[in-house]
Nucleic acid binder design. Structure first.
Length: 275
DNA sequence: ATGGCTAATCGCATTAGA
């Protein structure tokens, strides 16, 4: 069974590359993040032609997550209990004041059971700066995620929680720790949030880099960062113990970051032995 | 050759990404 996670940075802008990638790599399950489109605008028909059924969550602007599967999609959860609402959204001007503003959680998580594995596609809040409300929201989001996944893990079912975590687990997971000294993605509370997730029974399946010593998954579009391998490992594949024990291989497909019109993230691909 | 941002939006400038 082949699973993958990929922040595509707009599924519409990336659709030709996504379809080519699916055709070439033939994954059974793909978790997508930053689809940046409403659920009803997701190109479901195009991926269905390649044999995939879809579970999609998107509210139209930023964010957006999806699961593609050719081994079934059952028991879809559009989000998890306790998802925090980002209050900063309330500061945006409202054009229509006739109705009270109802804030809903952003489209950052979707779960489904695919081929007997509980799969979550996750897109953690960025955090922006460590002194921002968005950073507080990020930590709250991780805390709620931990509770939700702990509940699911208690059932004993095989589980995968993969996606763009927006946290580099160690200093080895950023190209230059000094550059991130006062930034999000590397602060002790963010790394503790990852440790708290591992503490409830999740294992970090670290992929093999296809080049260089670091399995980076993200490179900024600017300043030739990819060319210079100025990257970060922030797309993570967390798995329950039994799934982690079935991992035959895991790698970063940095080929998908090359060429014209790539996402700024590369897919992480994980092959599992049969249960 | 993998290159110096990119995508979406009530757009021609702003916001967000990380």
């Amino acid at each position: 069974m082949r699973l993958a996670t990929w922040n595509v940075n707009s599924v519409k802008a990336r659709l030709p590359r996504l379809l080519t990638w699916l055709d070439e790599h033939e994954p059974d399950v793909v978790c997508l993040q930053e689809t940046k489109c409403r659920a009803d605008q997701f190109p479901a028909a195009e991926v269905e032609e390649l044999g995939y059924t879809t579970a999609v969550r998107g509210d139209g602007r930023w964010n957006g997550v999806a699961i593609l599967s050719r081994v079934g999609v059952e028991d879809v959860s559009t989000g998890f209990p306790g998802e925090p609402v980002y209050e900063g959204a309330a500061e945006e001007p409202q054009l229509e004041l006739t109705e009270p503003v109802v804030l809903t959680p952003e489209a950052r998580a979707i779960g489904a059971t695919c081929g007997g594995v509980r799969v979550w596609s996750l897109y953690a809040p960025n955090g922006r700066t460590p002194d921002s409300a968005h950073y507080v929201y990020k930590l709250e989001w991780f805390a709620a995620l931990r509770e939700a996944l702990a509940t699911e893990l208690a059932s004993g079912a095989p589980l995968v929680a993969c996606g763009d975590y927006n946290v580099a687990p160690t200093d080895d997971d950023v190209w230059d720790p000094a550059v991130f000294a006062h930034s999000t993605h590397v602060t002790p509370p963010e790394r503790q949030a990852l440790a708290d997730l591992r503490a409830v029974g999740l294992h970090d399946v670290v992929p093999t880099p296809m080049k260089g010593p670091h399995p980076f998954t993200y490179w900024d579009y600017r300043a030739g960062a990819f060319h210079k391998n100025m990257g970060m490992r922030i797309d993570l594949f967390y798995a329950s113990e039994d799934v982690a024990g079935r991992v035959r291989s895991a790698y970063v497909d940095r080929e998908a970051r090359k060429g014209k019109g790539p996402s700024d993230h590369a897919p992480v691909v994980v092959d599992l032995d049969p249960a």
